[in-house]
Design a protein around this nucleic acid. Structure first.
Length: 271
DNA sequence: ACTGGCTCCTGAGGGC
DNA sequence: TGCCCTCAGGAGCCAG
């Protein structure tokens, strides 16, 4: 399940292979993804040179002079560079064929992902325009979080997963970050102190940065297409550890649901 | 302006 | 062994 670190890992893996490449053809086999794949993509992208491969939140942006292709990997999306003639597998929904003879192939079993096309600057796309800061932006800080948190009653966990507040914190990392910061997930957002917001902002940056660093070690798997990174499995301290002893104090990890999401925490370490 | 709940989809895993 | 049910999850969307 790609979270921000995996999307960044995919971007870093793909960028050197895609930058400067000419897209020769777009093949869409299954246009019914999270949103329909726009017909303009296959009409307007071929012939264009990919100038840059960027990331905003969990969106990958392939910029050309005519427009930008936007990928979202959803839950199960995979992007791989393969020979154009590589045999198709189940759920191979789209190919961007390149002048090099390779193709960028999008596979997504659950179809929560997306492939879009915009002629406007992608920052103005409806899906991107109301996104909050990147966790590594200078404007993202404990003071920023604390200011945004004022007067909010829902759980702090829901708050940090809100893309309008900060991007890139999915369910797994929300659990891990709150454990690292020593904050109980159901705490009403407005009750979290400025000192706690400082810890929270720091934990978000550190845990995502560490995950990106570890994701880098599995870069070749993405490109080769025969594996996916398992880095987060090794580092998880609360997620999916229901009933197991807390790594810090030994108390059993508790599980509950917040906003329809599985939530794990240590009642001893998190207040 | 907020906020909680629903929804898309498929595959894994548990229970019987 | 096999079937059925539940669950998982990103994030837009809508109703209250």
């Amino acid at each position: 399940m790609p979270e921000l670190p995996e999307v960044e890992t995919v971007r870093r893996g793909l960028a050197p292979h895609l930058t400067g490449q000419i897209v020769t053809k777009v093949v869409v086999r299954q246009p019914r993804l999270r949103w329909p794949v726009p017909e303009e993509l296959a009409a307007e992208l071929p012939g264009q040179t990919i100038q840059r491969v960027d990331r905003r939140a969990k969106y990958l942006l392939l910029r050309t002079d005519a427009g930008t292709a936007i990928f979202h990997l959803g839950m199960t999306g995979r992007l791989r560079l393969l020979p154009t003639a590589a045999p198709l597998q189940k759920h191979d929904h789209a190919d961007l064929a390149l002048a090099s003879g390779q193709c960028l192939r999008f596979n997504d079993s659950r179809r929560f992902g997306a492939l879009l096309w915009t002629k406007e600057p992608p920052e103005r796309h409806p899906l991107l325009q109301s996104l909050g800061p990147e966790p590594f932006d200078a404007v993202f800080s404990g003071a920023y979080l604390h200011r945004r948190a004022q007067g909010r009653t829902p759980a702090i966990k829901t708050f940090i997963m809100d893309n309008r507040v900060v991007v890139g914190v999915g369910n797994i990392y929300a659990n891990e970050v709150l454990f690292a910061a020593g904050i109980s997930p159901p705490r009403p957002t407005g009750q979290v102190t400025e000192a706690e917001c400082d810890r929270l902002a720091g934990a978000i940056r550190e845990i995502l940065a560490e995950a990106i660093r570890q994701g880098g070690t599995t870069l070749r798997d993405f490109i080769g297409g025969d594996g996916e990174p398992g880095y987060f499995q090794r580092s998880l301290r609360v997620y999916d550890r229901h009933g197991l002893p807390c790594v810090a104090c030994g108390q059993p990890i508790q599980r509950c649901r917040i906003g329809q999401r599985a939530t794990y925490y240590c009642p001893g370490c998190q207040r």
